[in-house]
Design a protein around this nucleic acid. Structure first.
Lengths: 234, 234
DNA sequence: GTCCGGCTCCACCTTTTGATGGATGCCGGT
DNA sequence: ACCGGCATCCATCAAAAGGTGGAGCCGGAC
């Protein structure tokens, strides 16, 4: 229904999705970052129920024929599911039966973004049956879009994110993990959501948070958000 | 001990206090706005326990010989307590005995800021006995500082505050009272503190907040802070 | 090897927040 | 005179957040 219901920053991902969706018909699309350890991060979903992403992350991601781990060594810009596997074989897989069918997906194309050979982000485009498969023209268009998106991602978004983490680190001496937590916190994410996003226990999130509160001398998450957001913009 | 422990924006007040404290010796100082209904608002305290301000607001403010209500019709820039009342009389007052003595205050000078004849803010300067009374030279210095502080207050800080309220109002259609609440919320204030600051019941704060959440479509205060703060800076 | 910091998790508890469904008085417009 | 929006307040409940004092594991420093 509505555009999406996602976290506040990640503007880059949202704008990118808007662009793609304005150029090709999709029933759904997802833009996520890939950490060096291949964990997905900060998924922004366009036009979709949000629990689908959790499903994917927890259970089905590892079965995905388009899992970015399988494309680290290639230099494909855009890959369709059907190019990887014959339709009749695909339809026999658990991945197709238990994940794609229930979510009404039939055709998939993934756009990969790389840095020094490593995949750092993926823009996943999903179509239900009635939209038909991606045409060669559409794939060509997508492949032309990829370089600029990759350029922006690497020259604008990632440096900005890195700069913010660095700035917080320098000011408050937070550890890497605490920075992961505060980054999500600053976009208004709840403890439970942070736990899911970082694959942590709720207790662990609270512990990190407690340390963050001490290091920044605040008494609550909203005071923290207010304080740090003002720090960052000045 | 530490500089102060106050709410995040109010930078103007803090900077003003820093200036004053760098020029004259004070044991404590407070900068607050005065609403049209003469309620004090957004007090920023320099070097002090913070509950003193609550004490003043709830109980002793109305007895204060330097209460701004008494100076609406004057054009005094800086007024000392001793200029209003002979020392031996002052020492007999409940205000002196129950408020000033326990808080270790002896000398007071208030700097008033007016707009169209109405007092809109007060910078209150407090000294313990050992610092001695304000000298005529110090008062002259303070009277020279007043015009620039008043200029900055009226030309920079208040318009900025007004602009922010207006911008939030236009975007989300909040009511006046809801704007009061969100303003404090955005500086990381808890519900209880908001209730005290606005002289409201906790229940009322929650009600306003609930309405704000609906109008801004967020599910929690920290998400609201993140969202609105980003709105404002862009 | 030992020690320490960082990361993870746990149980237990209190406080705060948020949701719900009321109630009242006020004011301004129709 | 009535209605709607606003502001105020209430009780009750559930969920989330936060504090405390642990524990185990790891990897690097000493």
């Amino acid at each position: 229904m509505s555009q999406n219901k996602n976290k506040i920053p990640n503007d880059f991902q949202r704008k990118g999705l808007e662009l793609i969706n304005s150029l090709v018909s999709l029933s759904e699309s997802v833009f996520f970052l890939v950490e060096p350890d291949m964990q997905h991060r900060g998924a922004v979903v366009f036009d979709s129920r949000s629990d689908i992403e959790k499903q994917y992350t927890t259970t089905y991601g590892r079965m995905d024929p388009l899992n970015p781990e399988r494309f680290s060594d290639t230099d494909d810009l855009v890959v369709t599911l059907d190019s990887q596997m014959a339709a009749h074989l695909l339809k026999q897989t658990i991945y197709y039966q238990e994940f794609m069918v229930p979510n009404n997906h039939r055709y998939v194309a993934d756009m990969f973004f790389r840095h020094e050979g490593q995949i750092i982000a993926v823009l996943s485009m999903l179509r239900e049956e009635r939209l038909g498969n991606y045409s060669e023209e559409e794939l060509q268009l997508l492949r032309k879009l990829q370089p600029f998106l990759e350029y922006s991602l690497k020259s604008v978004y990632l440096p900005k994110r890195h700069k913010e983490r660095l700035s917080i680190y320098e000011k408050y001496g937070l550890t890497e993990r605490e920075l992961d937590v505060i980054e999500l916190l600053l976009s208004g994410t709840s403890n439970k959501e942070i736990a899911v996003e970082l694959s942590l226990g709720l207790a662990t999130v609270k512990t990190h948070l407690h340390h963050i509160f001490q290091k920044t001398s605040v008494q609550s998450r909203s005071e923290l958000v207010a304080k740090v957001l003002l720090d960052l913009q000045s």
